Computed example of a mutant assay.
Amino acid sequence: MGSYHRLTNPMQNGWYTAWMSVSQDKKQAVESCVVIDPQANAPVLRLYLCGLLPDVVYCDGSGNKYKDAALMHGGLVLPMQKGNYPALQIVLKMIEK
């Protein structure tokens, strides 16, 4: 079944909301982010993930590789989103222990 994690509180930051789901074996995670109040010159979106396996490398759909510690403590920097109420979903898969 896996686990669900709310990464942000839209009532506190006000301009975007993000959440993620992690598979039960923690080998795959899906992060979702929706900009609910688009802003000009918005700051960089950085999501601090949680619930990942320790000492593991994850890969996204573009082939970028990330260590679990980098994702959970340094955060995942999201690409700039344009338009009205843009949404983004990133799938991470474990590639090595």
Rank of each mutant, 00 (worst) to 15 (best):
V30Q: 07
Q89K: 08
G61A: 12
M1S: 14
Y66A: 05
I36M: 01
L45P: 06
V34C: 10
L52D: 03
L78C: 06
Q24Y: 12
G63A: 02
Q28G: 07
S3W: 07
L53E: 09
A29Y: 03
N84K: 10
S23Y: 02
P79K: 02
L7V: 05
Y58W: 02
A42F: 00
D55R: 11
K67H: 13
H5T: 07
N13Y: 00
K26N: 08
L76K: 09
K27D: 14
G74V: 10
I36Y: 01
Y16G: 02
P79G: 03
H5F: 10
V91L: 07
Q12W: 09
Q24S: 15
L88R: 11
I95L: 03
L71N: 00
K26L: 04
Y16V: 03
D37A: 12
M94H: 06
P54H: 02
M11E: 15
C50V: 15
K97H: 10
Q89W: 03
A40S: 13
A40K: 10
Y85L: 13
M80V: 15
G14T: 03
H73S: 13
G74E: 14
G83H: 01
S3F: 08
Q28C: 12
L76V: 01
N64D: 14
S21I: 15
S3T: 15
L7Y: 04
G14C: 03
M72R: 12
P54C: 05
N41G: 08
A29Q: 03
L7M: 08
A69V: 13
